[in-house]
Design a protein around this nucleic acid. Structure first.
Lengths: 308, 308
DNA sequence: GTGAAAGCGCTAACAA
DNA sequence: TTGTTAGCGCTTTCAC
């Protein structure tokens, strides 16, 4: 019987040892034999426009890449329109990656729970997903919203509304909760909560609705800076001076915060650091230290500029 | 001899047939046996900031995803700081993907040439890479620049400069060439060429340098809209009225073009369509039709707004 | 140490 | 049609 196994395997063991000679091992074979792929996936259940439109994601990717550079894992980015579909789930479940980082998860999306049972999974932001014992890296959204809202209260606002993220996201719910509790604490009646979808367009739409339904508004907690980029021009157009007539506090401290018409007072969250931390946890877990702390909460802080 | 092969393989052929029951084939094994991975990579040799900052990439990804949705290939995004390094090259060369799409390639980067000899490769924009017979989807950058520059000439500008992309990119060189040839054709002396690095910051810096060295400028072809976002405020700050004192034509027709202080006259290039076309070619080649036309050139057209 | 061989879970070719 | 089996190119174990 002639050459039962690959010629390369049998005859060129020296070439295999010498990567300098240009030998590259076959990934599928290596992966099949060793049961690991040395790749991790970042899954973002958002459409491309949202993914590219929000610098939050850029920071997360930068942080993950930064940490991964010192490892021999590669990062594959998977942008899934809302819930990952069959093809992508099979990709993840089929062993193409050793672990998964999920950001921007919507509570109604349960498609990832099966994956979470097969692979280590780290969430950026609490997921509200049941039955998956993954890891979570988050900021204290409630606390951040309290800080933001307290600033408005301290500045003398009494008619305080909020433009929130989509209520299918835990972070959005938490920020609304922080806003509401601060107002109750202060003895103020909460104004409207309007969903601005964490987007520029949504922020503008929400601002318009807010002015229609609650013209006496004198303070707004806008739950992301991107929404502020949409909302602020609307207030200015309608003749509200900022911060004189209405005060605004944002969330993220993204580049948009500095380049607004009125520089934005906002809650800074350490996005790059979050990415780095998520990658760090995943790498650690993949190396066998599955006793990593389940939840990591990073601090936020108020960045004071002119809008409030 | 007991159970020589996988129990699953031998005993559960029915389960394997029934994906509805939750069976997911092992990707490494399938890939090893069939010699294909059913994945393609989009390689972007840029840092994360650039990748996320330029909507051009968002459009490309959207186009590719759009086309891939009707296939059973998945897209993995690889953002490589400038030249892809060892880890990523081994990933690509090791058979993790069946084909590669490259955008934003710099002429000095030869790291991909070996990959291009192993896998089908489609470039977004001419690469200037030797020895790789890949496919190219491009717009006619020279022609686009001619259109833009001709607009400035027609509007009566006589001191016409250009803010270019990095001259390590073929698209930047082509646009400079189109600009220069139009001016020569018109009997005008070309003004300075200043590299604005295809970025907002770079555009602002270039505008400052331009005003220093060539204050008589009355027309600028800015080779990307992103650079215009940086350049336009500088002109306005320095007291140049647009379009009265200086006329500006951009390139891309990105969202930035509409939201500039002065709505931007710009050369529209069909980025989403380019992504779709690149994916289409790659899929076609992977299906065995390697006789696809090597170069596809998509049309540009001038979008007239107020800046020129 | 160095070398042979088993087997990872599939696909594809072939036999029944 | 259906069932069997030889690889795919690695890693790992085990014998030398």
């Amino acid at each position: 019987m002639a050459l039962p196994r690959s010629i390369q395997t049998r005859l060129l063991p020296c070439a295999r040892r010498s990567p300098s000679l240009g030998y590259v091992p076959n990934r599928a074979a290596r992966s099949l034999a060793s049961q690991q792929s040395h790749a991790i996936a970042l899954v973002v259940p958002e459409d491309t426009t949202r993914f590219f439109g929000d610098v939050y994601f850029a920071s997360i990717v930068a942080g993950i890449n930064d940490r991964l550079e010192q490892s021999d894992y590669v990062l594959t980015l998977m942008v899934a329109d809302h819930a990952p579909q069959g093809k992508m789930l099979r990709y993840l479940a089929g062993g193409a990656v050793d672990g998964v980082v999920v950001v921007s998860h919507h509570t109604f999306d349960t498609s990832l729970s099966r994956i979470g049972q097969m692979l280590p999974m780290v969430f950026g932001g609490r997921s509200g997903l049941q039955g998956v014992d993954g890891w979570v890296v988050d900021v204290d959204n409630v606390d951040g919203a309290v800080t933001a809202t307290q600033r408005l209260v301290d500045r003398g606002c009494t008619n305080i509304a909020t433009i929130s993220g989509p209520l299918s996201m835990q972070s959005a719910l938490d920020r609304v909760e922080g806003w509401r509790s601060t107002l109750q604490e202060a003895g103020l009646t909460p104004g409207p909560v309007i969903d601005g979808d964490y987007s520029v367009i949504g922020g503008a739409r929400a601002a318009r609705e807010l002015i229609e339904t609650y013209p006496e508004v004198d303070g707004v907690f806008v739950a992301s800076d991107l929404m502020t980029s949409g909302a602020m021009p609307v207030f200015l157009d309608r003749g509200y001076a900022i911060p004189d007539d209405v005060k605004i506090v944002g969330y993220d401290d993204s580049p948009a915060a500095k380049s607004c018409e009125v520089p934005l007072t906002t809650v800074r969250q350490p996005s790059v650091e979050m990415g780095r931390e998520m990658a760090d946890i995943l790498l650690d877990v993949l190396a066998g230290n599955s006793d990593r702390q389940r939840t990591t909460v990073l601090p936020t802080r108020l960045v004071e500029r002119e809008s409030a």
